[in-house]
């Protein structure tokens, strides 16, 4: 089956972020396809490469990056939600005249149309959080 995921909550604050990773791993292990993972609301915070969780805790962003590399996942961060919350990539940094960027490798920034398309293309859209 072809799945799309929508993640609505940030890491560590809310279990939704963890559940989404665990779902992704389980689905891939069963041979399912993940069409796209779309990060929305505070879920965009899963994409920051500047988070420093304690060493004895999980690193959610790093887990996504590892999964992305292994399975070539399409990890999309909503641009409107991200800009509101100070999550930007290098291109946006330049365009907006900001002095830093924080989006991790493995993620890409795009619009809400990507979420709708994810719903159209997948057999199931699973919403985590909210």
């Amino acid at each position: 089956m072809k799945f799309s995921l929508q993640i609505n909550e940030g890491p560590y604050q809310h279990q939704a972020a963890d559940s989404a990773i665990q779902f992704t791993k389980a689905a891939l292990a069963k041979g399912h396809e993940i069409f796209r993972v779309f990060f929305y609301h505070d879920g965009v915070n899963n994409a920051t490469r500047l988070a420093i969780p304690p060493q004895d805790d999980r690193n959610i962003t790093a887990e996504w990056v590892a999964l992305q590399k292994e399975h070539n996942l399409d990890l999309v961060v909503c641009i409107a939600a991200a800009q509101r919350r100070g999550l930007i990539d290098e291109d946006e940094m330049t365009r907006q005249g900001k002095d830093a960027n924080n989006i991790s490798e493995g993620f890409r920034i795009s619009g809400l149309g990507q979420l709708i398309e994810a719903g159209i293309e997948a057999d199931r859209l699973i919403v985590f959080g909210a």
Binding site: N8, Y40, L112, I120
Partner: peptide
């Protein structure tokens, strides 16, 4: 919370997809 506003934003963008 911001959910209502950001839901509305999805609805408006989604309207362009003829679903």
């Amino acid at each position: 919370t911001v959910y209502a506003l950001e839901s509305l934003e999805v609805v408006l963008i989604g309207a362009a997809f003829d679903q």
